[in-house]
Design a protein around this nucleic acid. Structure first.
Lengths: 225, 225, 225, 225
DNA sequence: CATGAATGAGAGTTCATTCAT
DNA sequence: AATGAATGAACTCTCATTCAT
């Protein structure tokens, strides 16, 4: 294997790691297999990542950072809270779609964060959640302030939304990705929307949302991958 | 440690396993540590469970089976769908409360189900979800039929509810169990309720639910344990 | 399992041990399996034999002793050396035939005798060989003295005969007992006979032995079991 | 221990394995001890042989293959059947002499072949026997055809010879290698020779063979090692 | 930079043996 | 006498990590 730019090689390794970690899980993954998948020798992996766990962490950090940056980029210049909500949902769906085959790895991240004495995994995940929560807060506060949402405890609602997102994702992964993730997110938004919209806003959106509720998100298509 | 009844010893071992698996995660758990926690020698564990994975599976099966049986017991003779919904929620909360300190282990089960070539874990989890989904179906169909809920794609809503429950649980676990799980479930029910209740039902419950939304579920108490 | 006479139980255990040792080999044999085959519990084996190796030794001793006693019984009152030779051969064949399905165990005894730091196995086997060698000596000396055999170094010939017997047995076992052991022993006797018979004796037996040589011992029958 | 050529390291390991297996037997041999004897770490053994049994098999295969190749090399260009018989005997004796201290290991191979559910050991041994039997057939057929041997069932005689060879070897090993193996083989040849030689050939060789019979093979020297 | 042979601590598992009942 | 639950020493094999080349 020829010499390539250090950053490129690093990316190759992360990609290979993602593939293998996703298929086997963290513990069943052998460094040798990652090296093989990346087309390099075992020792080379250690030129880029000092330990297996560090590599795993680098992958988490890489993905979350990527998503954070992408989301900020997309939100630039968009002020309307409803539009912003859509942008967040779209970015999330796009991200998951890109990493669909790696989805199981997120369960590994979560489990690892809980079990590892090294707090970094948990911290990084909480930092990410905090990042999303902040966006959620601004957004929800504004919707309440504008009278689009009824009065609600914003932190609770934001937490709930985060939980729901992860829950749907979990469901999606454990069901073998048997339904279109995006439609599930939209469905969720419709149910929640009907729940917290003010009477005035509800009147406007009622029919559209009700239709979505009747339609559901479980399609004939087995997967959206 | 003296001789005890075989079933009791088995329970002791499952309990010890739960404790250690929850604290360390599946892979970091050493059989010797489980044995030690149960007050027996390493070899004794193997008198009851042929492999570490079998022990892990026995734990999953024991818990889910326990919950299934308990829930059926509680639902006996209760016909009203709203009451049934409450019973389900209460049973779930009670179950989680009983196993609060073991909560992280569910992430392990999920991750394991996805990574293990042995399909049993995934199957058992899906069987459990199916069990809950059936209850949810009956219940939701009836609520729609009675005009309490607006028309909605029942399977989708049931799926969504399941996802939300797991999502809240996940949130709860990853946040270090920093909020009262029960209140979060109630809060969820209020939001969803407002979303799918028919106009007529909404009028009746409106104030009560709106108040719950304003209150939220994030308490001063950092944990309910 | 009811109580039985101690000696009978001991025999049952030896028999069960023989079966399992023969099928699995010494090391792959589990005490539990012997107990099971004998219809008793694991602990019971230890009431009769203090260790696994002791049980193995008891089996060797039982078999060799049995053969020694039986052979002496059969030789009683028989003086003619040629007849005595036949009796020895018959007894050996009968013994092997009785234990045909246990045959592989002899390889285990031999291997064990060589590897065990405990010299007892080797000693017992050598004692048995010595017993046979003594009979062979007397017999051969007499045949030489009577001029039936040509002058020959008797110890060497006796050794050779012993080696040949074991060799044929080994061949028989490793070939899956694919030929009639008895005929092979007779064939051997014919070849050796022609080799060491004096001219005078040869003339008498020539045609009979030559015929046996032409016939061989490899039959259509795949086994004599 | 520094890096060495892969083939050389493999040979070192086989040699170390031979030594330890011969001294302790297959089961009592610890991989760690083989590694130690070869001057490497435990893990290194597994870089070359995936399991202990595979290593054991590799040893069997290496020895038998070595002998087969060496024998074919020595027989090249030799046509006279009596000479060929001598070459075979010499090669066998030389081989055993080289591996004298490893002799007990052959008993392990035999026992292992019978007890292992993996048929490879038995197959390899039978393949080796077949190789020798083929040589024996050609040779004996020719001796009969030329009238040097009396008419005899060739397959039986070849089998008998093989059995005798192994039997003498077994005797030699179990007696602690207490006599010169080569002389025993020669002695055997003399006895068999006298048994199957035609009258004409016997007249020529009679005195020489008879002398060998009188001399025997049990020497004052306790061992030829 | 890249390699892959070498390392060795450490894991799950086995099973002969013990002994309370 | 018979049992079988309990024991724990000991084993094979794994694999992250190192480092000489």
């Amino acid at each position: 294997m020829g010499r390539v730019n250090r950053d490129i090689r690093r990316e190759q390794l992360l990609e290979a790691a993602a593939t293998v970690f996703a298929r086997k899980g963290y513990h069943a993954t052998r460094i040798a297999e990652i090296a093989h998948a990346a087309g390099v020798a075992k020792g080379t992996v250690y030129e880029y990542f000092p330990t297996k766990e560090e590599l795993f962490y680098a992958l988490l950090d890489s993905w979350l950072g990527q998503f954070e940056r992408e989301l900020l980029r997309r939100l630039e210049g968009i002020a309307d809270p409803l539009q912003r909500a859509d942008v967040v949902r779209e970015a999330a769906v796009l991200f998951y779609r890109q990493h669909a085959s790696h989805a199981p790895i997120f369960l590994e991240f979560w489990a690892h964060a809980l079990r590892s004495p090294d707090g970094r995994f948990l911290q990084r995940i909480q930092q990410f959640r905090h990042f999303l929560a902040q966006l959620g807060h601004q957004l929800t506060e504004e919707l309440v302030a504008r009278g689009i949402f009824i009065p609600v405890d914003v932190p609770s609602l934001v937490h709930l939304e985060a939980g729901i997102s992860d829950g749907i994702f979990l469901l999606w992964v454990l069901s073998g990705r048997s339904f279109p993730l995006e439609r599930a997110y939209v469905f969720r938004q419709s149910v929640l929307g009907l729940g917290v919209l003010s009477d005035e806003a509800r009147q406007r959106l009622r029919e559209k949302l009700a239709q979505k509720l009747r339609k559901g998100f479980l399609e004939e298509r087995p997967s959206e991958e």
